[in-house]
Design a protein around this nucleic acid. Structure first.
Lengths: 100, 100
DNA sequence: TTGATAGTTCGATAATATTCGAACAATAGC
DNA sequence: GCTATTGTTCGAATATTATCGAACTATCAA
């Protein structure tokens, strides 16, 4: 499949990041990525339809939170921890340490 | 006017806080409160209609970010800094230090 | 090439938010 | 009481988002 757009650190906006993480499904995805390191879309779907998950991954990608790479037919996702820490030091850690 | 509902610290949810702060108008309000300490609704309207501002203050109030007290016909708003730091240590600081 | 698998994209629907004018409520001052 | 000021609430229009099925694309394996 084609490549995805990943905004450079300088273009990551705090409003977009906050918005992306204000959705329970997306926050749950990010929590799992923080714990497991890398995961395919399917591994994180929680029983939801693929099209719904694809939408959420796109929001996470375009806001600069997640990086997606192709691996065969799978898409492997990782948290852009360093980039987020560069852009907004302490933000991700503060959000991840909040109770579920 | 009547009293407002301010959720106790234990009921403040990170998703709600992130959502409230993902709006540019509300984030701007919070930035100004962080800088100035306390302000009336009118002092922060930026030329917007009163009903729109009232809506945004309500979102900030009900998510636990802002405290509103009555002062004559004015409503004075303050950031619930301590409460937010208790609930989500470092979150507010990380967001406020992001560039505008 | 055929089939299976993993995700994306499209399109429609439903839910939720934003915006703002108009009407209302509460307080202060005269 | 009357009036001005401050902000809320209501209602409607608009915009945005979430959800999900269906069709599609890309890759791998046999």
């Amino acid at each position: 499949m084609r490549q995805f757009r990943h905004p450079p650190v300088s273009e990551i906006q705090v409003e977009s990041v906050l918005y992306a993480l204000s959705d329970p499904v997306r926050l749950s995805i990010v929590r799992q990525l923080a714990r497991d390191g890398e995961a395919s879309c399917a591994a994180l779907d929680g029983g939801r339809p693929k099209s719904s998950m694809s939408h959420h991954f796109r929001v996470l990608r375009e806001s600069g939170i997640v990086h997606t790479r192709n691996d065969g037919t799978s898409h492997m996702n990782t948290l852009r921890r360093d980039d987020l820490d560069t852009a907004f030091p302490g933000l991700l850690a503060a959000i991840l340490s909040a109770p579920c």
